[in-house]
Simulated assay, not measured.
Amino acid sequence: MKANASLKIAIYSGTIPSSIFIEHLIEGVAKHHHVLLFGTIKKATQYNHPNITIVETPTKQLRNIGVTGIRSLKLFFKSPKLLNVAFREALTYKTRYEQWMRFSRFVPVLLHQPHVFHLQWAKKLSRWLFLQDAYGCKLVLSLRGTHIHISPKADVALAQSYYDYFPKVDTFHAVSQDMKTEALSYGATADNVKTIYTILPDAVFNHFTPAKAVNETLNIVSVGRYHWVKGYDYALRAIKLLKAQGIQVTYTIIASKPVPEDMLFMINDLSLEDVVVFKDHVPQDALFPYLKTFDVFLLPSLSEGIANVVLEAMAIGLPVVSTNCGGMPEVVTPNQTGWLVPIRDPEAMAKAIIEVHQTPKEQLQMITRQAHDFVKTQFNAKDNIQQFLALYDTVVRNYK
């Protein structure tokens, strides 16, 4: 295939729409190549670009049977060999239900034959490696989040699958240098892993204003799902320490409800009912103005790739206190772009928050300005999309 020719790129997460980062990637790549989105539709989604094609796998089984039947017939006339590949690959699964579900997902991909299959979640790697032998598809795997840092450490079989399959992947995309290091530990080679940072849309940077003077009541906010890896129990202990020192504080957690019972119990046990606020999901267009009403953004996580919410906080000028986990040290530099503390350390969290509270306005504005400039340079859409395009071009250069 000639360099710079339009490619068919499958950006696959399994559901449509996907995460905000993946949606930004889809829109950016579609300006240059044809993007295929395979999977189930979780929410009605419209893309205003002719280069984006949704290839749905219906969730209602009767409809799925009909749609898959038609696709199978088309694939039979196009390539009986590939239809046979779909059958044989589906039969490697144990139950009839699993076999059917896999078959109904394999057929549309083999029918459209993307040049590149960009898989977003490492756990699903074993399902799609067969595409390489089926018709020479190039497999790109993104490395992010708990799929790399947490899951293989808790699941011996998954870890072994990474050792077995990572050497077979055509190329990797890592969201941080830390993720790249993890990939190398499972057998990926250094020249086969490209670190490309998260894409932040230009509109985010338009919300930037210099940090304001901290209010008498210190308003702290965190954003993220209710999950042990987000470290909220350590954040709550830090808030307890601040309250015990006589600091007026409120702590707002923005996440989709319901709030877990153990968290509600802990808040009651620490006597924090009067200072902790739970805010249900905030729409993206309202999130940044809302975040600007707070004094500090707190990331208490035990593990992250690079947390998008921290990048967004830095982009809009909100001071950040983050744990030193995953790729966070790549963006949060003490005394330059924010405050970095050890994981599982409420005392260090509380101390850093007090430092933010006591930092003179001019210095606080300098730190948040530096943070804004850093993410604008390293995480802007134009440059990072170009890196993805170069990655796709490189991996298909010898495509036959």
Rank of each mutant, 00 (worst) to 15 (best):
D345G: 07
M101R: 12
V55L: 15
F103V: 06
P258Q: 08
L218M: 07
Q387C: 08
P260C: 08
N4E: 15
V116Y: 00
R397W: 02
A122S: 10
H372Q: 12
A157H: 13
Q336I: 06
F117K: 00
V320R: 02
I16N: 05
Q336W: 00
T217Q: 14
I199Q: 07
P58W: 01
V309E: 01
Q61D: 06
Q61P: 04
N268F: 02
D202S: 15
E347A: 15
D164F: 06
N84M: 14
V321H: 04
R397V: 14
T57S: 14
V193R: 01
S303A: 13
V320I: 05
V221E: 03
V296C: 13
S222Y: 03
D345L: 11
D170F: 02
V332Q: 05
A307S: 15
E362C: 02
V320G: 01
E182F: 14
T293F: 10
K243Y: 09
E362K: 12
N206D: 13
A213K: 15
V321M: 03
L391S: 09
G338L: 04
G136M: 14
Q387A: 10
A381E: 15
I253D: 00
I196Y: 01
D155T: 04
I70V: 11
F374S: 06
Q248W: 03
K153H: 14
L291S: 10
F166A: 09
L139D: 07
A211Q: 08
K2Y: 08
F87W: 15
Q378S: 10
K361V: 15
Q378P: 00
G327N: 01
N206R: 07
S18W: 00
I148K: 07
D383H: 11
R102C: 12
K168P: 15
L241G: 00
G145R: 01
I65V: 14
K194F: 10
R127F: 08
Y47L: 05
G224Q: 00
V223A: 06
T146P: 01
L91V: 10
D383P: 01
F103K: 04
D280F: 09
H207G: 03
F106E: 03
W128G: 09
V282P: 07
V175E: 02
L241F: 00
H115V: 08
L139S: 10
T146G: 05
Y234R: 09
D178W: 12
A255Q: 05
N268Y: 05
T15Q: 14
I316Y: 09
A352F: 06
L36E: 02
Q177R: 10
E89A: 11
T146Y: 11
I253A: 07
